[in-house]
């Protein structure tokens, strides 16, 4: 069960987590609870993987270059090709999607040149060409993604069934 307190923590601190020496104390004071209450609740939310982390979100392409890439792979070859793509440490997301372009991945490297070299290597090993979709513009609006949480929502512990998660960059 998600209490009002937990829902506030989930909804109100996706941004503007306090940049003060004791941020959990600052949160506690604004919610009228103790610092320990906040720390314990955040630990619980983390343990239950309802939050992935409390951390910084960085603007794309500031700490290296990343790119979205798609491939159109015959069904019979998909498993093999996906395995090759995933084996590259530069690849951090790799999804199968329902489309003629059925393999979608994101890779990241320290420079654009290394990124292109890695893609050339992936093409060579897979035997299929890649469709490279770099960012032209990012329409980032600084609003949190409002969670429509039900107060009595049962926490679910089933493993993921294949729907991808929100990526967080």
């Amino acid at each position: 069960m998600l209490s009002d307190f937990y829902m506030q923590l989930l909804n109100d601190y996706q941004q503007d987590f306090p940049l003060t020496p004791r941020p959990y104390l600052a949160i506690a004071e604004s919610l009228g609870v103790s610092e320990d209450d906040v720390l314990l609740a955040m630990q619980e939310l983390t343990d239950q993987t309802l939050i992935n982390r409390i951390g910084t979100i960085i603007k794309p392409n500031k700490m290296g270059k990343s790119m979205l890439v798609a491939m159109a792979v015959p069904e019979a070859q998909l498993q093999r090709v996906a395995g090759i793509v995933s084996s590259f440490s530069e690849v951090n997301h790799n999804y199968e999607r329902e489309n003629r372009f059925n393999l979608w991945f994101v890779l990241m490297s320290s420079t654009g040149e290394l990124l292109q070299d890695t893609l050339d290597e992936i093409e060579q090993q897979c035997g299929y060409s890649t469709m490279r979709l770099p960012l032209v513009a990012d329409y980032f609006i600084n609003l949190g993604f409002e969670l429509d949480l039900e107060r009595d929502q049962e926490l679910d512990r089933e493993p993921d069934n294949g729907c991808d998660r929100l990526s967080t960059n």
Binding site: L9, L10, Y13, Q14, Q15, D16, F17, L19, M42, L45, Q48, T49, L50, I51, N52, R53, I54, G55, T56, I57, I58, K59, K62, R97, W104, F140, N142, G144, F145, L147, L149, E150, Q153, D156, D160, N161, C163, D164, R165, L166, T168
Partner: peptide, 29 residues
């Protein structure tokens, strides 16, 4: 961190929810 936030290098500091676990099971590109 404050300076990087003011300059847009850091977009935000905060809790990153696991949307899938919170019930957002479907996404479409």
């Amino acid at each position: 961190m404050r300076i990087m936030q003011e300059n847009g290098i850091i977009r935000r500091v905060g809790a990153v929810p696991n949307h899938y676990k919170l019930g957002y099971r479907y996404n479409g590109m």
